[in-house]
């Protein structure tokens, strides 16, 4: 086992019990106060406003798929989609979902169908608004710019793995004065989001959708575990800096 494998194994071994204990703690009702993230507050209102205006919400889980390094980002985008789908199902106004990586297509369609339960006809109708655009970033951006420009869209929610093409889409939303909520984990894309979106989710905040929007106990538990490990890493870094400086 090499050094990288050993470090990763140690992190994994440390994470598992902390995740379990934190999850159990939240399940027992000891729910901590989560700090306010304004993008999640804004997300709670987008569906209601879209229904009032008779327009749609466009959402994108990014350009990642479920078979690569960007799987976690794609799952974060799907968590947001799950919340928006649940909110909009009651009014029968499903969001427009645009997909770049085809492996996300069946998952996104399933997420959209779930709230309709046994009503297969409505579920099939809702799933028709999940559209595969293109796997190439530029072609995907052009397709989404078309959706935002041609269709009646009230809010644009783009949370997942994006690259430079984010700015093309973000600016298209801004020019149409569409409410825009964006988030990405890549630090190189964050400035584009900050410049073009009304509300932003930066870095790891995109993974917290399940905890903030749907209050899933294990998601809140994993936030606690992340905080615990973060403090552990900070202490190790500070200790190593002191040791390196003094000795």
């Amino acid at each position: 086992m090499n050094e990288t494998q050993l470090v990763l194994l140690l992190i994994l071994v440390a994470f598992l019990p902390v995740l379990y204990l934190s999850g159990r703690r939240v399940q027992e009702g000891k729910v901590p106060d989560l700090r306010t993230i304004s993008a999640f507050d804004a997300l709670r209102g987008v569906t209601a406003r879209a229904i009032e205006t008779g327009r749609s919400v466009h959402t994108s889980p990014g350009l990642g798929g479920i078979t690569g390094d960007l799987t976690a980002d794609s799952l974060a985008g799907l968590s947001i989609l799950e919340y928006l789908a649940d909110q909009s199902a009651a009014a029968g106004a499903p969001p427009i979902v645009t997909i770049a990586n085809p492996t996300l297509l069946p998952l996104a369609q399933d997420v959209i169908r779930r709230p309709y339960g046994a009503d297969q006809e409505e579920a099939a109708r809702a799933a028709r608004d999940v559209r595969w655009i293109a796997p190439e970033p530029a072609a995907y951006a052009a397709g989404v710019m078309g959706v935002l420009g041609e269709e009646a869209v009230d809010a644009n929610v783009m949370i997942g793995a994006f690259g430079d093409e984010y700015l093309l889409i973000g600016e298209a939303a801004s020019r149409r004065r569409i409410t825009h909520i964006g988030g990405a984990s890549d630090p190189n894309v964050v400035p584009f989001i900050f410049a073009s979106a009304d509300q932003t989710l930066i870095g790891e905040e995109i993974y917290a959708a399940g905890a903030y929007l749907t209050r899933k106990p294990w998601h809140i538990g994993s936030l606690l575990a992340q905080d615990f490990l973060r403090w552990g890493i900070v202490l190790i870094v500070v200790a190593l800096v002191i040791i390196k400086t003094l000795f």
Binding site: F15, L19, A72, A76, S185, E204, Y207, H219, S222
Partner: peptide
Amino acid sequence: ILLGVALGTAATGLR
């Protein structure tokens, strides 16, 4: 940001 992303990815993967 990258440190937080790594922890978030690990948590998502483990779930």
